[in-house]
Amino acid sequence: MSYIKPNFRHPRLPENALGHTVADYDGAISTLCAGCGHDSISAAIRNACFLSSIPPHRIAKVSGIGCSSKMPTYFLGKSHGFNSVHGRMPSVATGASLANRSLTYIGVSGDGDTASIGMGQFVHLVRRNVNMTYVVANNGCYGLTKGQDSATADHGSISKYGEVNSFDGIDLASLALLQGASFVARSFSGDKEQLEPLIRAAMGHNGFAFIDVVSPCVTFNNHAGSTKSYEATRDHLDVMPLDFVPMREEIRTQYSEGTSKSVTLHDGSVIYLHKAETGFATNDRTGSLTAIQKAKDDGRILTGLLYLDPDTQDLNHNLKIASRPLNELGKDELCPGSKVLNSINEGLR
């Protein structure tokens, strides 16, 4: 934990399409442990928002409770934020999305906040396909309460106190897939080259986008025997790299055929998936589930974009919510008067 972040920035920081530098997406200085994977995720979210040129004031950060849920303080200091009750961020996110569909929603949660206390809310959020990016900083332990095993701790992983975990961990990516999520990905906090384009693609996706990020707890879960340490994660990664090219950018890079596949999002942005020769298809829900399970059986952690349905319809669409946000609707639109009421009543006769 550090106290002071100087005000000086690199004098030649690049600018995005809005004329902002990445510093305009900074938050307060982190109070997490030095070396926490969560800080890397914060930086990846910051960089993704900068690269995608999203105006900071058009973003809303929502979170629950935990080390992970403290994170939104440490990025996007000029955005909206709501730090909710433990495990209840999905309700807040759902309500916010219905009230103002024009913001970009970023939910940040942890393995405790999502896979334990918040599990009930989480599956319903997936089921309803709320238009948001949901990042789980997954470290397999409860760092805030001295590192007890969490619900995502892997079977056989050894805790800092020497206990071998005898339960199977919940696989959140598989769960999201089963529950019908339209965008499911997994990544590693130490791999920004993959994590940044994933977050950008998730923010560009029109629906619920889930990213499970292995994020080592440097204090309680970074020792020999832990399956979520920096070293163990790196040793077992099975990486599917990708690139994200937003709609308004010219596509410059040429990928040789056979090694890359592209998926176009509803807004015209393109995701390039490399390692296409593995035969992995992102539009095959069953295939993805199988691939995740197979990697797990082999002791590997499959990372990348696992599943994507680019043509999905989000909650606002399905509930036929007004296309303009509630806060933009005036009295005349919200209370159209007795004439309109009469005509509705007439229609029901």
Binding site: K5, P6, A34, G35, S189, P216, Y230, E231
Partner: peptide
């Protein structure tokens, strides 16, 4: 251990 913490925090 290549956790990126230094790169993430560096103000400049």
């Amino acid at each position: 251990i290549e956790c990126d913490a230094c790169a993430d925090i560096c103000p400049t």
